[in-house]
């Protein structure tokens, strides 16, 4: 694991709604190195996808914008770069895999066509014919069976797992330094999920790319990731290596998430569920956003935002933002 390829510093992204500017990503910082996999974990609406869209700068227009912070790719800040420069980063330096393979391929173009397009962006001026061989190689690399024939297929003629492999092929077409995978296995069958995760790991081993893996599945994080950040209400509530966080979850939300994962070792009548709803988007928020659902809530939690502190594992890479840390609970 080398130096950081991608470093996000104090990122704040807002949506300009009729009610005002609502922060959806708030003071988020993390970094990921070559060959390293970072998991971003959280419920729907926790800001994990918005973080990914901010990095790619494809936020919903015209309402989404990065308000402050830095996104450093090899020490170059992407925030504030003109659109033409950002367009060169997309697909070339950072590849992305979206959640639903059934909707993320264009239904009117062949698979080959869509992979070729990605290759052409990275090799401008190269005639299409000469790229066809590369397409077949890429499809083989993501384990698409019968690749020579499949290049002429349309998305509706393929299964979800196959389509997601094609999306993977598009993501790696530019040999990116970072791949952002936004819940890539959520829409797949459980049996296919595992295959796909192994595929991602193989690609990483071959190419040494950094992966940012967005998920709500802690099981996948344990299997695939080296470190993780846990997001809640647009903020990072806990971050650290997978080993540290799983061993000593330091934020009540992380603790609750880990408790709500079913285990084969323990037989329970009812799975643990976190009471209440994730916070709705709002303009002004006071205190810790998890406070309304937190079993350990105290007075200070409701009106002052907790800062990041050393987590319970004691490791200096392990941080959590909670007023109750270290206190008996």
């Amino acid at each position: 694991m080398g130096a950081s390829v991608l470093q996000v510093k104090n990122l704040r992204t807002v949506l300009d709604l009729a009610t005002g500017s609502v922060p959806v990503v708030d003071d988020v910082s993390f970094d990921v190195g070559a060959g390293e996999t970072l998991g971003i974990v959280g419920e729907s609406g926790s800001g994990k996808s918005m973080t990914a869209l901010s990095i790619m700068q494809v936020l919903p227009q015209p309402i989404g914008r990065i308000e402050s912070g830095e996104i450093l790719l090899d020490q170059t800040d992407l925030v504030g770069l003109p659109e033409e420069e950002i367009a060169k980063v997309r697909g070339r330096d950072i590849g992305m895999i979206l959640q639903d393979p059934h909707t993320s391929l264009n239904p009117v173009f062949t698979i080959g066509n869509q992979v070729i397009e990605a290759l052409q962006i990275n090799n401008p001026g190269t005639p299409r014919k000469s790229l066809l061989g590369r397409v077949v190689d890429l499809l083989r690399q993501v384990n698409v069976a019968d690749a020579e024939r499949r290049v002429h297929a349309y998305p509706h003629q393929m299964s979800g797992g196959m389509k997601q492999r094609v999306v993977g092929a598009i993501a790696i077409a530019g040999a990116p330094k970072v791949i952002i995978a936004d819940e890539p296995t959520t829409a797949l069958d459980v049996t296919i999920q595992l295959q796909y995760l192994e595929l991602l790991r193989d690609i990483q081993e071959e190419t040494g790319t950094a992966i940012i893996f967005i998920t709500h599945d802690l099981g996948i994080v344990a299997k695939l990731c080296h470190k993780l950040v846990v997001m809640y209400g647009g903020k990072i509530v806990e971050s650290g290596t997978v080993a540290d966080v799983f061993r000593a979850p330091s934020h009540p939300y992380t603790e609750a998430l880990l408790k709500s994962v079913p285990s084969v070792d323990q037989k329970v009548d009812r799975l643990y569920a976190i009471d209440g709803q994730p916070p709705a988007l709002s303009v002004d928020r006071k205190g810790c956003s998890f406070a309304p659902r937190c079993p350990y809530v105290r007075d200070i939690c409701t009106h002052q935002v907790p800062q990041h502190d050393a987590g319970l594992s004691g490791a200096d890479t392990h941080l959590a933002a909670c007023w109750n840390m270290g206190r008996d609970r």
Binding site: V58, R90, G91, L98, I121, V167
Partner: peptide
Amino acid sequence: DTEYVKLARVKGVNERSVIWKH
């Protein structure tokens, strides 16, 4: 608003092709 338009953008397709082609 579809995902394939989003994918076209994140794979680096320029905005004109995103609109008129995809």
